[in-house]
């Protein structure tokens, strides 16, 4: 085992005789090449058919997975952004709606109170007019009775003074003259 290969050919070198430098012993080349061809061929076959496709598949699966996860993350991000936008939108809508409702209510209340006020005013005006009409009717009535009373009083005074009752027409004419002043 511990002897140089040249001894295996049967020719034991004499003591002291140097064997050729091992890498240049041409008689070993054939067997070296044969075992190289077998071992390297085997390695190439195993790498090309088994090992490298396996490593390649693992790497490809990883890159696919990463790409898929990134895609998923992007999708979720877009989704959350859309949700945020929708929330913002509905918030704005609700705000606008609340504002509109408040405005509407205010307007309605205003209109109602205005209408009430107007109705009240109209009622009051009507009442005032009615009262005024009543007053003026009464006044006219009173004035008319005043004239009658005055005529009666004047006729009674004249009767008491003269002892005879005056003509009604004369009394009227005298009253008209007195009222004209």
């Amino acid at each position: 085992m511990a002897q140089p290969i040249v001894t295996s050919t049967g020719a034991t070198p004499p003591a002291g005789a140097k064997a050729a430098f091992p890498p240049f012993q041409t008689e070993t080349f054939a067997s070296q090449l044969l075992w190289f061809a077998i071992s390297f061929g085997l390695l190439y076959y195993l790498m090309a058919k088994v090992a490298l496709p396996r490593v390649g598949a693992i790497l490809e699966e990883r890159s696919n997975r990463i790409a898929k996860n990134l895609e998923e993350a992007q999708r979720l991000k877009e989704e959350s952004e859309a949700a945020a936008a929708a929330y913002e939108k509905s918030l704005n809508e609700a705000r606008a709606k609340a504002k509109a409702i408040a405005q509407e209510t205010r307007d309605a209340l205003l209109a109602e109170s205005e209408a009430k006020r107007k109705a009240l005013e109209a009622e009051l005006a009507q009442k005032i007019a009615a009262s005024e009409a009543a007053i003026s009717a009464r006044t006219a009535e009173a004035m008319a009775s005043v004239r009658g009373i005055a005529a009666d009083a004047a006729a009674a005074i004249v009767e008491r003074l003269t002892g005879q009752s005056p003509e009604r027409a004369a009394v009227e004419a005298a009253l008209n003259r007195a009222l004209a002043h």
Partner: peptide, 20 residues
Amino acid sequence: SEIVFTNASLFMFGAVALVT
């Protein structure tokens, strides 16, 4: 040529086995 399996052959197959 004599076909001999040597320590070199052993190391070559060792490399193949290790890599595999």
